[in-house]
Every structure is written in structure tokens, then in C-alpha cells.
Design a binder for these strands. Structure first.
Length: 360
DNA sequence: TGAGGTGGTGCGCGGATTGA
DNA sequence: TCAATCCGCGCACCACCTCA
């Protein structure tokens, strides 16, 4: 869904996934129309037509180069993020029972504000989608626009939709529009990518309650007797050794083998990022994110890099390290790269500490 | 020689905080 | 008060390596 539409083609919905999603819809649901506004190669439409022979199929995409024109689908080449154009193209008809299917593009969307229609009364979920600048969020808003109460929506959504803090408010608003929600397991559906996704299915009910958006960051203010710090930004690390510099523990290897020589100037105010005895290093990002271990002797009095969160103020025993690690690994987030955020790590530490209190 | 596997990232963005 | 700086988030990643 860009000018360079071929770049998205590797993310076309695999046939078997389209079939799975269609088969996950209730057996007694018999739609008269299927719409896919990110039609791509048309696999969703094919799967729907195969299941419901008489269904009317409508496909929209910014490029219709890869869809089989021999099928008698109604096709529109257009930018589905343009809500006004979308509503003018797909007229709402209360007689129809619809299933709307989508494998939206994922990614950052610059200039998302251009999709706001300032003439109309501002729609809060649309505003939120524009604010977070994610193309999948705006595409979901476009999909919502097509739904009437009782219709079903099925989609492949990126993992961050379900786990990211930045998208949390949007997710809450979106889920509020549905009932009978089914969320699939985390899967890599696209062989050419590391991207992790989940299937979403829901029955549209429309939003009728106002949502109180939570200030998620306020959770960071939880008082505790430990402190957790992210290490020094990797891009600011120096390769050259000098008398004024302190060595930085900088690697991404769960065995704890220090591999990269990096340094950082001794800086007032950064003392919290210097490793002490009994501190715990938690790998923040990458395949090994979630691995944690007690600071080795050779790390002491060195800085810690951006690969880690440094846990200070409590000493964990071997068993507690194991528990912390297994909890952290389950909390990994990320579309294409695993990572952990501070809230997740703090929650995981709390689990370990609660266990300690219980045993005491 | 290229596809799939494995180990490892640099940095832009935007909100929060600092300090002039 | 507001510009500068800090800091946390998160990447439809990125760059090798291995092996058929």
C-alpha cells in the first residue's frame, strides 16, 4: 500500500491462512457480501467465495496488478485510507450481511494527519490512529467504516497491536467495537519476514460506551525498593580506549560472554548505569531478550549498554533468576524484533518478589 | 549460490524533564 | 516559559554464517 506496491507483495495473505480465518467464522453465519480493502492477490476473496458460493465479493487495493481479473469480483483501485472516498465507493446497505477481511500493511505512516477529515465531527478512534502514525491502525479504522452491527471482521494483525504500549489506547477503542472476539496464537505467517502476527475475529457491535483512556505510563511510578535502568545508548558508545573512559559491558549473548569492546566517558549523573556486585543484567532486545543473570566479577565498575536493563537494589538467588527469566521470556513483544519494556520487566520482578514474600 | 538460520543493532521519534 | 536535552520505545530489522 505504497507507491512501491511491490514491496508489500511478499506480505500477501497466504492461501491457507485466508482459508483458516474464513473457517473460524461461526458456522451459522451466512454473509451476502465479502469486502477486502487490502485485497492484494485476492486470497481472502477466493477463500470467502469458496465457502459461500453466492457471496458478492468486493476487492479494493491501491494496486490491482496481482489479482486475478477472471474472477467476477467487483474491484476498485484506490487508497482505502481515504475514508470519504471509501464511503462513497462502498455504499452502506442495511439489507446486506457482511464479512470484512483484511491483511493490512504494517508500519510507520508519515503524514498520517492528511487522512483526517477536518470538516466532519472528529472521531476519537480515527484521531488516535492518526496520532500513533501506524498504517495498520488507520487501515483498521477504514475497515470499521464498512461494518454494520452484526457483521463480522477477520484480520491478520501485527503482534504489536496486542502488546505495544503505544498502541494500547487504540487497541482498547478498537476492541470496544466488537463482541465474540477470537484472538489467535502468535504466529509467523509470512515466510519472507520475521514479523509476528495474530488472527483477529470479531462480531461488530459498534462503540456505544465511552472509553476512559488509561495513563499507562503512570504505572511506572510504582514505589519499590529496587531500581531498574536502561543502559547507555549504543550509538553513543566509543570504540577507542582512553584514560577518561570507562569500559561498557556491551554484548547480546545469553551465555554472558563479553564480545564487543566499547567505552563511555566517566560522566556525572550516570553512576546508576555502573554495574555493582549483586546487580542483575536483563537482556532487553533481540532473540535472547529476557535472559538475565547476576553481574559477573569482571563486569563490576563498568557501564552497562543499551542492550540491558540493570536491576539494582535486590540480589536474586539462582532459582529467582530462573523464574524471572521464564516470566520475562513469556512477555517478549515486538513485530519483527523481540524486546521487553520497563513495565513488563518491573511486573516480572514483582512476581519474583511476591514469591519471596510468600515463602518468607 | 541462495535460502534459511542465527546472533546482534543503530537510531528516529516523541514525550518528559531540565535548566536558562 | 520555552528551548534544549534526556530517555524510553521499537523496528513487515540487519548482516553474517551455514549448508544443501
Amino acid at each position: 500500500m505504497t507507491n512501491n506496491s511491490t514491496s508489500w507483495s511478499k506480505y500477501y495473505t497466504p492461501k491457507h491462512v485466508a482459508k483458516d480465518i474464513v473457517s473460524m467464522l461461526p458456522q451459522d453465519f451466512n454473509p451476502t457480501k465479502v469486502i477486502d480493502i487490502c485485497a492484494g492477490s485476492g486470497n481472502f476473496l477466493d477463500a470467502a467465495v469458496k465457502k459461500w458460493n453466492d457471496i458478492k465479493a468486493v476487492g479494493i487495493d491501491i494496486s490491482l496488478n496481482d489479482i486475478n481479473k477472471e474472477n467476477k469480483y467487483t474491484l476498485h483501485q484506490m487508497d482505502a485510507l481515504n475514508l470519504e472516498l471509501l464511503s462513497n465507493t462502498i455504499k452502506s446497505n442495511s439489507e446486506e450481511v457482511k464479512v470484512v477481511l483484511a491483511n493490512p500493511p504494517f508500519g510507520k505512516l508519515e503524514n498520517s494527519e492528511k487522512y483526517l477529515n477536518k470538516k466532519k465531527k472528529l472521531n476519537s478512534i480515527h484521531n488516535e490512529a492518526v496520532k500513533i502514525k501506524r498504517i495498520e491502525a488507520l487501515m483498521l479504522v477504514s475497515n470499521l467504516k464498512l461494518l454494520n452491527v452484526g457483521d463480522y471482521f477477520g484480520a491478520i494483525l501485527p503482534e504489536n497491536f496486542f502488546t505495544s504500549i503505544r498502541l494500547a489506547n487504540f487497541k482498547e477503542m478498537f476492541l470496544n467495537e466488537f463482541t465474540e472476539v477470537v484472538i489467535g496464537k502468535k504466529e509467523k505467517y509470512f515466510s519472507s519476514s520475521d514479523v509476528k502476527t495474530r488472527i483477529f475475529i470479531g462480531k461488530y457491535i459498534g462503540s456505544n460506551k465511552s472509553i476512559k483512556l488509561q495513563n499507562i505510563k503512570s504505572k511506572l511510578l510504582i514505589k519499590s525498593n529496587y531500581s531498574l535502568h536502561r543502559g547507555i545508548d549504543n550509538s553513543k558508545l566509543l570504540s577507542a580506549k582512553s584514560i577518561d573512559n570507562i569500559e561498557v559491558v556491551h554484548f547480546s549473548n545469553f551465555k554472558g560472554i563479553q564480545k564487543l569492546e566499547r567505552y563511555y566517558p566517566k560522566t556525572k549523573g550516570k553512576e546508576r548505569l555502573i554495574i555493582s556486585k549483586n546487580d542483575t543484567l536483563i537482556l532487553r532486545v533481540g532473540r535472547n531478550s529476557g535472559f538475565s543473570y547476576q553481574a559477573k566479577k569482571e563486569y563490576i565498575n563498568k557501564y552497562v549498554s543499551d542492550y540491558f536493563y540493570l536491576l539494582k537494589g535486590i540480589k536474586l538467588n539462582k532459582k529467582e533468576h530462573q523464574i524471572l527469566q521464564s516470566v520475562l521470556i513469556k512477555k517478549r513483544k515486538g513485530v519483527a524484533t523481540n524486546y521487553l519494556n520497563k513495565i513488563d520487566i518491573m511486573n516480572s520482578i514483582d512476581i519474583v518478589l511476591n514469591r519471596r514474600r510468600y515463602l518468607d
